[in-house]
Amino acid sequence: MIRFDQVSKSYGRNRQVIDDLTLAIAEGEICMLVGPSGCGKTTSMKMINRLVEPDSGTVLVDGRPVNSVDPIKLRLNIGYVIQEIGLFPHMSVADNIATVPVELGWPKPRVRARVDDLLALVDLEPGLYRTKRPRELSGGQRQRVGIARALAGDPRIMLMDEPFGALDPLTRAKMQDEFLAIQEKIRKTIVFVTHDTDEALKMGDHIAVMRAGRLLQYGTPTEILRHPADTFVADLIGSRKGLKLLRLLDCGSLMRQGAAAADLPVLPARATAEQALSEMLRCGCRSVAVADASGVTLGRLDLDDLIDRVARDD
């Protein structure tokens, strides 16, 4: 668990970058820090691995103040991914990923095995990519390597500073989905900085909205969407809140179990309610069938249920 306890930081007399930040991030969750540039989200994140030291207050990891831990040891146990990725251009993909294991002094066979596991995890064929140089990769592939590199030492915490910010929209959406799938497996505590509210709503278990160094609201995506703390948060979320809420729900949890008419369009249980609505609009029907991965019908999702669920506040 990560905890910020009344943390403040200013550069010079007039620039207060973090103002009395108190925040608790639970184990195994993705916490999104979101807000406009200069709101202090990156600075807050860098306090966790001591790239920035607070003026006052404490940052705790697993109950221990980080300033009582040697920064090098601390960082070796915290994965770090940045927007610019920062792959080492003179090293192969494998050597890049091996950075932390090598610093930790792992024996070579173990490092090699770990590199191959991670390449497979981020969906890069080890035999094909191990020896490539970063410049031979596409933007998306580079960030995959960046993520694999951050995971190499099997840290419990990952810090991700706008990791998908430089990718084109299509690649970005794909990377978000893949990363969520990876997180299903690895269950790390992740602090994820973004200025993209949609990304925050999609990826976060919890979202911390920041502005001018202050925490405005901390809550789940649904809470933030339903009850924005003030007009700033409401503006940040933007319009079409109903559709955004639909995006947070999946068909599997909304459907009525049982049989469904054979002529209904079929969606996987993992599909979002937004996709279900879109399908209904497209085919002009008021229901869709929901099936599992092997195509077996699980149940039916009706338009009325969808509307009820979104309109109902719980």
């Binding site: 691995n49 790239l51 146990n77 610019e84 610093e103 810090l159």
Partner: peptide, 27 residues
């Protein structure tokens, strides 16, 4: 040497001497 490269190296826990030897000097 690219600032992002250095930031990544430091952020991952490389000691300054190691950053110099493994990253800065080779580049």
């Amino acid at each position: 040497v690219d600032a992002a490269t250095l930031q990544a190296a430091r952020g991952m826990g490389m000691r300054p001497g190691r950053v110099l030897r493994r990253i800065e000097v080779p580049l």
